[in-house]
Computed example of a mutant assay.
Amino acid sequence: MSTPLILGCLWVLAAAATAMLPMRRQMVPGLALLAAAPVLLAWIGWVHGWLWLAIGLFAFLSMFRNPLLYFLRRAMGRPVQVPKELEK
């Protein structure tokens, strides 16, 4: 197995572990995973081709759909809803 796929598997395990944390403790590791994903997906696509890139991209979008929609709405100037656990 190649290095990008091993790192991709570790990324998935880290994302699953982050999802098990309380909502307030998910921010920092979640943002780190969100930032690392495009680099890792590009590396997987470069080494293994577009099909594996597409599979990884679909998985990434499925796992991070709510944070990505939040950032998209903020960028477009639309109102956003923050989960009650994160409200102060």
Results as ranks from 00 to 15, higher is better:
V12T: 07
G30P: 15
R73T: 14
F60N: 00
Q81T: 15
I6D: 00
V80P: 02
A32W: 14
K84L: 10
H48N: 12
I55H: 00
L21Y: 15
L31H: 02
P22Q: 14
L68M: 09
S62N: 01
A17I: 15
L41Q: 05
V47Q: 06
F64D: 01
L10W: 10
K88S: 10
W43R: 00
G77W: 13
Q26M: 10
L33S: 04
M1L: 05
L5E: 03
E85W: 15
V28F: 00
G45M: 13
R24K: 15
R65N: 00
M76I: 03
A75I: 05
R65V: 04
L53T: 01
I44F: 11
A19N: 09
A32D: 12
A37L: 07
T18V: 10
S2M: 04
L86M: 07
G77P: 07
L72T: 14
R25D: 15
Q26V: 10
L86S: 03
M76K: 13
I55M: 03
V47N: 04
E85K: 15
L69F: 11
F60I: 02
E85S: 13
M1R: 02
G56R: 02
W11H: 01
W43I: 07
M63A: 02
L61F: 10
W46R: 04
W50Y: 08
G49S: 12
K84Q: 01
W50N: 06
M76G: 06
A32P: 12
P83L: 06
L53V: 05
A32R: 13
W43C: 01
P38Q: 08
L5C: 07
T3R: 07
L68Y: 13
A54T: 13
V47P: 08
R74M: 05
V80Q: 01
M76T: 10
A59W: 14
P38F: 12
W43G: 02
W43Q: 06
V12R: 03
V47E: 04
V80H: 02
L10F: 08
F71G: 01
L41Y: 10
M63P: 04
A15Y: 06
L10Q: 08
Q26G: 03
A19P: 11
P38C: 03
T18N: 14
R25Q: 15
L13E: 02
M27C: 11
Q81Y: 07
W50E: 07
K84Y: 10
G49F: 08
A54N: 06
A16T: 03
G49R: 09
F64T: 00
Q81V: 11
P29R: 10
L41W: 11
G30R: 13
A17S: 10
M76D: 05
E85Q: 14
S62C: 03
V47L: 11
F60S: 00
L51R: 12
E87T: 15
L7F: 09
P79C: 13
S62F: 11
